[in-house]
Amino acid sequence: MTDLFRLTDVEKSYTRGKEKISIFDKLTMRIEEGDFVAIMGPSGSGKTTLLNLLGGTDKANKGEIEFDGKRIDNLSEGQLTAWRAANVGFIFQFYNLMPILTAAQNVELPLLLTKLSPKKRRDNVATALKIVGLEDRAKHRPREMSGGQQQRIAIARAIVSDPKLLLCDEPTGDLDRTTADEILGTLQVLNRDLGKTIIMVTHDAQAAKYAKRTLHLDKGHFVESELAA
């Protein structure tokens, strides 16, 4: 397997008033293509900051971040935006669907960043909705769907442009156990059958079991790693 991500000596800190708060100090890690990684850790351990760095929504102060063999840490804001659109699908804890758009319109959003024709966009949306099993809900608005269905729509939105990488920020944090298991099962299918690399931040040990391996973060360092059962 080739490395999809390679982080070398990454440093990240914030300044609050006169105080400098260090999140990562020389963090080094690798994530292989096709991996499904759960990242766990207490609040403030740097989970979301790591996800921001991996997703190109934040920049490191120092160090190198390579994606698919190319550095992304030195890209400009605009280049990072384009990179995200082409390579990353995001799945949020609270789904983050646009309430006034239908399911299909929500799923179509990332495709508006491409040069695809409207017809091709419609076809891709239909395919994505079929993968998550909600093709019959295409014209429904988020408020007309359950939490689990909304998260499936969010997953369809994340995969519709066929990115290599899915970044999930507490994807089951707002769902009951049964629904959470369904969503995690869907993520497993995307990883196993479609080869998507998935990095999932979670507090839920049960959820982490769906990943191939779990990384534990504490105060900006990985303290242990384990393979899923």
């Binding site: 997703g55 659109a85 983050n96």
Partner: peptide
């Protein structure tokens, strides 16, 4: 939140 979501997805 909507704006942040769109920006994360890749909207300029």
């Amino acid at each position: 939140a909507e704006i942040a979501t769109l920006r994360i997805i890749g909207f300029s």
